[in-house]
């Protein structure tokens, strides 16, 4: 399995008043195709800054970012915008839907801005709405939706162009526990059933635990990573259910 994202030596310094301590410092990472990775760490440790560089929203001061085999950190603004439209879907904590467009129109919009045919975009929007349980809501305005529904619309919109990678920045941050779990289950399904590559940022270990691999950040650096080792996985289930003796 190849890697969808490869970053080496990423550093980002926000210039301004005070000392320019890097928000992200010498971070290298790889995300394999089809992987679901969580980036976890306390508030202010640099998660969003890192995610934005991986998605071509922000540029590193040093280091390289490769996505889908293409180096993106040196691209011009125009080419970067094209790159993002094709390869990156993004979901934020606050859903950023367009208030005077209904659900379908919100989902279709990024597709219609691209070069795909209108008919194909329509078909894909229906598919996504069905997968995400939004079919009933097609004609509703965002203002009439619950938080969980709005986030599902935002996810559908992020997926309309079939992005190489789905990036999510605190996607459950504005949701109650039940709706948050709904979104996380959806990510697991997209990852498991559709092979969607996902990178999710969160400060909450309970949220990060839905991912297959957890990268821990601290003060702008990656300090460790954790994936459920085969030998260890199933240990608690065995203790609870006696499945292995």
């Amino acid at each position: 399995m190849g890697s969808t994202i490869r970053a080496t030596g990423l550093t980002r310094v926000y210039r301004g008043e005070g000392n320019p301590r890097p928000a992200v410092q010498d971070v290298s990472l790889e995300v394999a195709t089809g992987e679901f990775v969580a980036l976890m760490g306390p508030s202010g440790c640099g998660k969003s800054t890192l995610l934005n560089m991986l998605g071509g929203i922000d540029r590193p001061d040093a280091g390289e970012v490769w996505v889908a085999g293409q180096r993106i950190d040196g691209l011009s603004e125009t080419r970067l915008a094209l790159f993002r439209r094709k390869h990156v879907g993004i979901v934020f904590q606050f859903f950023n839907l367009i208030q005077n467009l209904d659900v379908v129109a919100n989902i279709e919009l990024p597709g219609l801005l691209g070069r795909g045919s209108t008919a194909a975009v329509r078909v894909r929007a229906r598919e996504l709405m069905s997968v995400l349980g939004l079919s009933e809501l097609a004609g509703k305005m965002p203002g009439k939706l619950s938080g969980g529904e709005r986030q599902r619309v935002a996810i559908a919109r992020a997926l309309i162009n079939g992005p190489t990678v789905l990036l999510a920045d605190e996607p459950t941050g504005a949701l109650d526990q039940e709706n948050g779990q709904g979104v996380l289950r959806l990510f697991q399904e997209l990852h498991r059933d559709k092979g969607q590559t996902i990178v999710m940022v969160t400060h909450d270990p309970k949220v990060a635990a839905y991912a297959g691999r957890i990268l821990v950040m601290q003060d702008g650096r990656l300090v460790e990573e954790s994936r459920p080792a085969e030998a260890r996985m199933g240990r608690l289930a065995a203790r609870l259910l006696g499945t292995r003796g």
């Binding site: 635990a209 991912a211 957890i214 460790e224 954790s226 080792a229 260890r232 289930a237």
Partner: peptide, 20 residues
């Protein structure tokens, strides 16, 4: 501390799967 946290995170992943 790091090793303890890595283990705790793995347990969290497993418990999350169990809860599901």
């Amino acid at each position: 501390v790091r090793a303890q946290r890595a283990a705790a995170l793995r347990d969290m992943q497993e418990l999350t799967a169990l809860r599901e």
